[in-house]
């Protein structure tokens, strides 16, 4: 993956996705999402009972640019599970609807609370 040495934002991103099993880079916060696509991802994760770390890119412009570069993906939100880039809101929605997201969480050993 991308060299992270000379960019603190990329280092921080790598640390977050290594430290937390589920990380959502989003606009706004889970309580006050600032974009419909981010809100949709929050709904999915909440519905599934997944514990997740959210990072508000509106508050952190260097992360906002950095995550696009890190993932080679130009849009927000972005979901990471166990350090792996899963996709943006279209993919999260499709995988939720098809049951693939539940399967992925199960395969990767992500703990879910009873929703």
């Amino acid at each position: 993956m991308t060299a992270t040495q000379d960019n603190p934002a990329l280092e921080r991103i790598e640390q977050e996705i290594n430290d937390h099993p589920v990380v959502l880079f989003m606009k706004g916060t889970p309580i006050f999402p600032q974009c419909g696509f981010s809100a949709m991802c929050i709904q999915v994760l909440t519905q599934m009972g997944a514990k997740f770390k959210s990072i508000d890119v509106l508050n952190e412009p260097t992360i906002r640019d950095g995550i696009k570069q890190y993932s080679d993906w130009p849009t927000i939100p972005q979901l990471y599970v166990k350090g792996e880039f899963i996709g943006g809101s279209d993919i999260v929605r499709e995988m939720y609807e098809s049951g693939e997201l539940a399967e992925l969480f199960s395969n990767k050993g992500v703990e879910l609370e009873d929703a």
Partner: peptide
């Protein structure tokens, strides 16, 4: 896969997304 499909579209529309 899904990620690769969307990346392909994003690359084609790079100027518009920027």
């Amino acid at each position: 896969n899904r990620v690769a499909r969307q990346r392909l579209v994003y690359q084609i529309l790079n100027d518009e997304l920027a």
